[in-house]
């Protein structure tokens, strides 16, 4: 044995490949990690995937934690989350990859699945959604014709399971705090939508499908998106059949993967039962407060300046405008909605 080999020697590791594969499968399932599709490789696509998955994961964590910061006990079914305002919650890539998905803590059962479908025109979108669909009075140059999609109202029940949590943690070789007995088996009833989404692709000749931001770093969360998206929908409402909220809060915010910073930000939300947290990936985007349509909104810009979004809530509806556009363009579209 050479001196270098001697210095770098390590005891034989007992590697169990099948157990490791099971652990990876559990992680892929828990974090809803999708494999790359052929031809879609590259940093831009990866950035979008991370952001979108992260958005879902962080929204889940933030939402659940927010829901659970409501003080008091619910003896009967009680509305514990009904957002009337929105707040930006900065998150990092570590928050995205470290936190477990909702699926880790129990079982989500859809009573009405989210099934988006195309509709031919604005009138159908309004009729199907039961909402007045706002349209932009001002579109940036080069934006193509609108296409409409509707997502009907969805409802789901989430049932906490101590056993499922334990199994998921074991598969990932993590040791979370034990789930309190009265959380185990308790249920949350979640309602979301309906929503209407309008896509505007690039109107220039030859453009098909999504227009990509082409930042030098390739880290735009907006890459791969259409030129402009206008969305509106009823925000999620969560009801509970009676969980011990203090225990739930301390339980969920102490989970492995939830950073102290993220937990502190969620705890700092003043009125958690009526505040919708919007996760902002701070590694890829910046955010600031803006006034839109006369109310407070959040502007999100990516680090390349090539993508922008603005989100606000007014009269019980959450609105969003996003695209591969500048801040001024996005705000102009948002303020022109009527």
């Amino acid at each position: 044995m050479s001196d270098i080999e001697d210095m770098l020697s390590v005891p034989d590791a007992n590697v169990d490949t099948e157990r490791a594969l099971a652990r990876l499968r559990a992680r892929v399932e828990a974090e809803r990690i999708a494999p790359v599709s052929r031809g879609a490789s590259g940093p831009r696509r990866v950035a979008v995937n991370i952001w979108l998955k992260g958005l879902a994961a962080a929204a889940t964590v933030a939402l659940v934690a927010t829901v659970l910061t409501v003080s008091g006990l619910a003896e009967t079914i009680l509305t514990i989350f009904e957002p009337k305002q929105i707040v930006a919650v900065p998150i990092t890539v570590n928050d995205l990859t470290g936190a477990s998905s909702f699926a880790t803590y129990g079982t989500l059962t859809w009573t009405e699945q989210p099934r988006p479908y195309d509709v031919p025109d604005l009138g159908t979108a309004a009729r199907d959604s039961g909402m007045t669909v706002l349209i932009p009075g001002n579109l940036p140059a080069g934006v193509g014709a609108p296409k409409y999609g509707v997502m009907a109202k969805t409802t789901a029940t989430f049932t906490f399971s101590a056993e499922k949590t334990r199994q998921a943690a074991a598969a990932q070789k993590r040791t979370p705090p034990p789930m309190p007995a009265n959380i185990d088996g308790s249920r949350l009833f979640i309602t979301g939508g309906p929503a209407v989404v309008t896509f505007y692709d690039d109107g220039s000749a030859g453009a098909t499908g999504a227009t990509s931001a082409t930042g030098a770093t390739g880290a735009s969360p907006f890459s791969g998106m259409p030129r402009l998206i206008v969305a509106q929908g009823r925000p999620p409402v969560v009801q509970s059949d009676g969980v011990t909220v203090d225990q739930l809060q301390s339980y969920l915010l102490q989970q492995p993967g939830i950073s102290p910073q993220l937990a502190a930000q969620i705890r700092a939300i003043k009125d958690p039962s009526s505040t919708l947290p919007v996760p902002i990936p701070v590694d890829m985007a910046t955010s600031k407060k803006v006034t839109v349509q006369g109310v407070d909104g959040i502007f999100v810009g990516d680090s390349t300046g090539l993508g922008s979004a603005v989100i606000w809530q007014k009269d019980g509806i959450v609105y969003g405008v996003a695209g591969t556009l500048t801040e001024q363009q996005v705000l102009a579209v948002a303020n022109s909605l009527h």
Binding site: L24, R32, A34, P35, L52, D118, F199, A210
Partner: peptide, 24 residues
């Protein structure tokens, strides 16, 4: 179309491909 794009963003990820498990 719009619905398909939305589905792509909301659908759960597909199962692990056998080729990946072999590689693993």
């Amino acid at each position: 179309e719009v619905a398909e794009r939305l589905r792509l963003r909301t659908a759960p990820g597909p199962g692990m491909p056998p080729a990946f498990e072999d590689l693993f």
